[in-house]
């Protein structure tokens, strides 16, 4: 087994175990905290794939910001405890069967697809290429996304300041 494969399986184990904690923990704060190792494991996979820039952004946005935001919201809304918030209900068996069905579909899909190898080699310095594509060929999509984000930002501010 190559080092790359070992690293992949180790990362996959980290992601799966913490993902399991996220969905099965009765304590919602534990779920939110368990997202951190899951996100970091995904970061590791990005690094294995040679996408360093995406990996950095993954840590910065997901592990650093989204998790903090989630924890912040839980602590501010539920009197600081978050213990009364439950993300589980009585429909466990139904949910499990749906999950198994999706897993079977996904496994079938992945194993029956013939994966083509990408042409060319990876550029040594990806951030530059990503920037070029954002402000070059994909400019319209990039600007459109930024307007959507700006609108939602302003909307959030307006909703939050309703009392004035």
């Amino acid at each position: 087994m190559t080092g790359e494969a070992i690293a992949f399986y180790a990362l996959a184990a980290v992601i799966l175990v913490s993902g399991l904690v996220v969905v099965s923990s009765p304590n919602i704060v534990h779920s939110a905290v368990a997202l951190v190792p899951a996100f970091l494991g995904i970061t590791g996979i990005y690094i294995l794939l040679g996408a360093e820039f995406v990996a950095g952004i993954q840590v910065l946005i997901y592990a650093g910001a989204i998790t903090v935001l989630l924890l912040f919201v839980i602590m501010l809304t539920e009197g600081g405890t978050g213990l009364r918030l439950q993300q589980r209900n009585e429909q466990g068996p139904v949910g499990a069967s749906v999950a198994v069905a999706i897993a079977v579909l996904l496994i079938a899909g992945v194993t029956h697809t013939t994966w083509g190898r990408g042409a060319g080699t990876l550029p040594a310095y990806t951030p530059g290429a990503i920037g070029q594509s954002f402000l070059g060929t994909n400019l319209l999509a990039f600007e459109g996304t930024s307007i959507v984000l700006l609108v939602s930002l302003i909307g959030a501010v307006i909703i939050a300041r309703k009392e004035e």
């Binding site: 950095g56 952004i57 840590v59 910065l60 592990a63 650093g64 910001a65 903090v68 924890l71 951030p127």
Partner: peptide, 18 residues
């Protein structure tokens, strides 16, 4: 010497808050 060094620094220092 990561080619995303500065970004890496911003990312790891943002983990402290968790």
């Amino acid at each position: 010497d990561l080619n995303i060094g500065v970004l890496y620094f911003a990312a790891t220092s943002s983990l402290v808050v968790v």
